[in-house]
Every structure is written in C-alpha cells, then in structure tokens.
Design a protein around this nucleic acid. Structure first.
Lengths: 245, 245
DNA sequence: TAGTGGTCTAGACCACAAT
DNA sequence: TTGTGGTCTAGACCACTAC
C-alpha cells in the first residue's frame, strides 16, 4: 500500500493541505487510485509526507467534502465507488460551458439602473426602491440559445457594461472587480415557457423549462447578486454533489 | 460584544465543537444574532468557553459550511446578511414534507426483484443484470399527489416491504436497517409529463415536471440506491445552499 | 489487541485589514 | 501597531472495527 506519488513544496504559497488534497484528487480522477481503493492512514501519510497529522487530516477532509472519498473509524479511508462526477459548486453558466468545451456567447437584452422590485430587495437585503442594476441576457452555447438570465445587483459594487457582459460571465466580471463570491442560496424548479421565452429560445410555448433563482453573497456577507434564470430543459441540467460532514 | 449565551457540557457525548456550532446556529435562527452582527474572535471565544482555539475554529467552520456566517482575515466573523434559509442536504422527500408540516403518504405501485437495467447498473457499480430491488411509488402531500419515484437497490442490503414503504421514507427504512447514507450525486432537470404520469399526478399531459436522479453512497463508499424521481413543478422545488471553503 | 479515524489541547508563525 | 483569521506542529485520549 504505497499509494500515488505525492510531493509537497514548502516554498509554495499554496497551503500544504491543499497541495496534498489536489494531488489526491488528481490521482483519483486519473484512475491512479481506483474506486474502492484504500488510502494510507493519516499517521502513515503524515510520516510519508513529512507533515503533521492535522495537516494531512485537513487535506483528507477536503476530499470527503467533495464527495471523492469516504472514511470510517476503525476501518480506513476509501475512494468512493462508481465513476466520479464533478459538481458545479459556485461557478457561473459561462464558466460551466467553457469547462464542458462549449463556446458560450451572450446577447445583452437589457442593462439599466432601476428601482429595486420588492421581492428582489428582500432577497438582496437592500431597501425597496433603492437603485439597482437590472440586467437581462440571452445566453448561447455553440450558437444555440440556451437560457434567459435576469439579474439584479446593487449599484455601489461594480459598474457593468454591455461590452464586458458580451464576452464574460457575470461572476467573472465581479471577480475582476474585486468581489469574491463566497456562497449562494439557490432554488431550482420548473415551469412552462411563456410565448416570449419560447420565441427567444427556439422552443414551443409551454415547453418545460428549468428555473433557478439564486442569491449570492460575498466576503462580507453582503448579498451582491440576485438572479432568476430559465434554461431549456432539453439542453441543460444541474448537477449537485452532497456529502455529510 | 458579549454575544449569545453559550455553554458547553463536557460530560455530554456530543462533541464540544458541535455543541458550540449548534448553539450559534440556534442564536442566528432565533434572531438573537442579527444579520451583519459580528461574532467574537476565535481567541476570545476560546477564552470565554474554556476551549482551545482549534475546537472553537472547528465549530465556526461548521457554520461557514452551512452558509450561516462569513469570515475575513483581519476583519472578523459576521452573520450572513439576509434571511437564512435551510438547504435540503441529505434528506428524503418524506422527511422534507414532515419538516414542512405537510402530511406525507405513499402508495406503492411496484415492488419486485428484477435484473438491473444497464444504466442503473452503471450508476450503482453492480454487474449488469445482477438482481436488484425495483420500486415505484406515488407520493402524496396532504392527500395531493406530488411525485412519482422510481428506485433501484442492490438486494443484499435491506429487504423492503410494502408495509414499511407505506408509512416511511426510503431513507428512514435504510437508516433503520443500519445503512448510513453519507453522500449522493444528484442531477436536476425538467421535462414534460407523459400521459401516464400526468394522469397519476393530476396534471395535464405535457405539463412541466421537475426531475431528479440521485445515486447515494454509504459509509463504505458503496452505492446503495439509485433513484429517478419526477415532481409536479407547480408544487415542489429544490433548495440548495453552496458555500466555499 | 492493533490500527483506524474522531476529538481535543497548547502552543506557533503568518498574511491581511484596520487604525 | 493591533487584532483578525489561515495555516501548521506535536503531542494526547477516545470510540470503533477487525482480527
């Protein structure tokens, strides 16, 4: 039981636990560690890598949270059986498409400063009728229409421009503006397409659509974005991985 | 800055970090800690509670993972702004309904041992055509039809009975059988109802339905259940909370 | 009985933000 | 400069599993 080759670089600014976690994750993804395979124990790994047990433990816990491995007291740590799929986590549709090898493009339907509608104000935690940026986009994947996305953002954070929005995802623009998204609450449902939506997306009126509303918060716990999106159900679905702590 | 009253019981079998996390979560839910409020620093909390810093840190990290608070180096720890909603995590529809104060009931449409269909075999990591239990249920909430749920389980784990299934959720039965679900991969989408589905659920044919397929694994990293469910979109949606680590 | 992961302690140094 | 969270160490005891 030697396991994959793992090496840490103590001069790197990347935390040691993260280096270890990444290398194990890569080994699992590569198939170097097969489903059901056992990892060395924490103590053994700590010894092998020249790290303390808490640091090794931190790395392993990271992989448990990602749903890649399972641990049992008295037994050991094993790679989860079955093929590994990746969950979407906190990325934007734009980034998801890029990762999947599809070419995202965007047509900005609307970009304006408006008084905040009451439901959105409640979600964002801003006063009703305070000014927010309102944004409506049509997103394509490889030239095929995929989603209509409507978003609201408090104005005092980042100034959006049509130019930027055409070539980038919203989260990318926020990131470039120094806003770090740290978490979000999402509600996922389904409904029938309205006539207007159907026309934009090349579906029939009444076609089933996947809907997602999301409110995302940043570093400071301030909500920075509320979105209401609809996706063509025939072309898109969401993946979620859940792991207990 | 004194914060809510937190007390730990060192004689309890409940881990100290968990006791602390639970009490903070309750204080936030109660509104005792309001959105934006600052928590005491780790060192101060450790001092107040008579715990070590790593233990306090563990408790706080637990709350970050749940999306209740946000931390910034050099700044502090704050309750997330905006109302707190709970995410579904690893519960079953049965439990979700109970928690929401609705009365779940179940009609078992099918329960049989069958050769495993190839897609399901791939998901569960069992040989194709090996024997599995196949299960189809119609779930009601307060007497209204809500979902059609189809599941496959390897036979060697738990024996299902119609009696048990009528009064309990599948996960409850598994739990009672000593199977601990530790994680799952879920795919959420939407599609139109077939004629048969529409009839069972009291919808029109072609009505938009929310779909979820889930593969859940246990303690040992073995996949123990694969499900394909459809929900009436007018009556059900899924909530997901995502937080970065 | 031996080995595993789960919990807990008491320190340390650092990067970062606010002042 | 001060205080914060982020990382890391080197131990310890325990509950649980497998043998």
């Amino acid at each position: 039981m030697s396991g994959p080759e793992i090496a840490v670089d103590r001069s790197s600014p990347v935390p040691l636990y993260f280096q270890v976690a990444e290398q194990f994750a890569a080994a699992i993804q590569r198939g170097d560690l097969a489903p059901g395979d056992r990892l060395d124990s924490e103590l053994r790994l700590a010894d092998q890598l020249g790290l303390s047990r808490p640091t090794v433990r931190h790395a392993i816990q990271h992989l448990v949270d990602k749903g890649l491995i399972v641990r049992r007291r008295g037994v050991g740590t094993h790679v989860v059986r079955g093929e590994v799929r990746r969950s979407v986590e906190l990325t934007s549709l734009h980034d998801d498409l890029l990762r999947a090898g599809q070419r995202p493009s965007t047509s900005v339907l609307e970009l304006a400063t408006v008084p905040c509608p009451p439901e959105v104000a409640a979600a964002l935690g801003v006063p009703a009728d305070s000014e927010v940026q309102h944004l409506r986009r049509l997103r394509f994947a490889d030239g095929e229409p995929l989603a209509v996305m409507e978003n609201w953002l408090p104005i005092d954070r980042v100034r959006l421009t049509i130019d930027a929005l055409q070539g980038n995802g919203l989260y990318g623009i926020l990131r470039a503006g120094g806003i770090r998204i740290r978490g979000a609450q999402q509600r996922i449902g389904a409904r029938a397409a309205t006539g207007a939506e159907a026309q934009m997306l090349g579906e029939r009126r009444g076609a089933p659509m996947l809907t997602m509303t999301r409110t995302a918060y940043d570093d400071q716990g301030h909500y920075v974005e509320h979105g209401a999106h609809i996706y063509r159900a025939t072309r898109y679905s969401l993946e979620v991985t859940v792991a207990e702590r």
